[in-house]
């Protein structure tokens, strides 16, 4: 007799994690050197995301050009096969996806030093191959990594994470089963600070519990930032040692 217990009395979640454990986080950068100026591939739990950054480059239409700063565009391609159930129709013009794209643009517009790339356009192309909850957080992480790989100047990392609230227990880094069972809060945290670039709550949550959930989310986001930083430094170290063996 097996029941699907979101949070067992022993403190274990459906996938065996504890309330404050992140899912498996694997990332690599410069995965598509031919297709883009900067690229990253990351897996957060079962989320598999390819992020390509093309730019700074000349805009296709001169009329779109801004003489004082670069223009940032984000396109998110949620594939039809990303979820367990294949989607019948394309998500390209869905309002939910447009909202995600706008949020991502507005987040990184404040983080990337656009004013040092005037008259150019930076295109960010994202392909979601598989999603299993907390997708917004993973999109943010993928973009941060790809922008760094592209060598585009920015002020700090932005790390994304989602936290759910199951009755009174906060659960860090929710997967899709958990997202369907409770309200989740998605945060985009700037570097090691407590400043939020993104705060997204889409389902009801008691006002008095929100602060605690935010605190746990920020701590989780800091850990994600450290994981990304570790991977980036490892990659840089490899590139430096490859370049200097001669």
């Amino acid at each position: 007799m097996s029941r699907l217990e979101i949070y067992s009395p022993e403190g274990l979640r459906l996938d065996g994690r504890r309330w404050n454990e992140l899912r498996r986080f694997e990332s690599s950068i410069n995965t598509h050197p031919h297709a883009a100026d900067g690229s990253s591939y990351m897996e957060q739990g079962n989320n598999k995301i390819i992020t390509l950054v093309k730019g700074p480059k000349e805009p296709r239409l001169k009329s779109q050009m801004d003489t004082s700063k670069a223009l940032l565009n984000v396109s998110v391609n949620i594939t039809k096969f990303s979820k367990f159930e294949r989607s019948k129709s394309s998500h390209k013009n869905e309002r939910r996806v447009l909202e995600i794209q706008t949020s991502l643009v507005r987040m990184f517009e404040k983080n990337v030093m656009l004013n040092i790339y005037p008259r150019t356009v930076i295109d960010i192309e994202i392909h979601v191959l598989e999603q299993d909850g907390g997708i917004m957080g993973s999109l943010i992480n993928g973009i941060t990594l790809a922008l760094i790989d592209a060598g585009i100047s920015m002020f700090d990392y932005i790390s994304g994470i989602s936290v759910g609230l199951y009755d009174t227990t906060p659960l860090l880094d929710t997967n899709s089963l958990e997202e369907n069972a409770m309200s989740t809060v998605t945060l985009g945290v700037v570097g090691k600070s407590e400043k939020l670039s993104l705060l997204l709550v889409e389902d009801k949550i008691p006002l008095d519990r929100l602060e605690n959930v935010l605190a746990i989310g920020i701590a989780g986001a800091h850990r994600v930032r450290d994981l990304m930083d570790e991977e980036l430094r490892k990659h840089a170290q490899k590139r430096v040692s490859n370049a200097s063996v001669r």
Partner: peptide
Amino acid sequence: LPSSNGSSRIIASDGSECIVSIK
């Protein structure tokens, strides 16, 4: 891709890349 019945990724030598999912 564990959520698909089959998947493949092909990379050509000029960098062209294609991913296929079978469900």
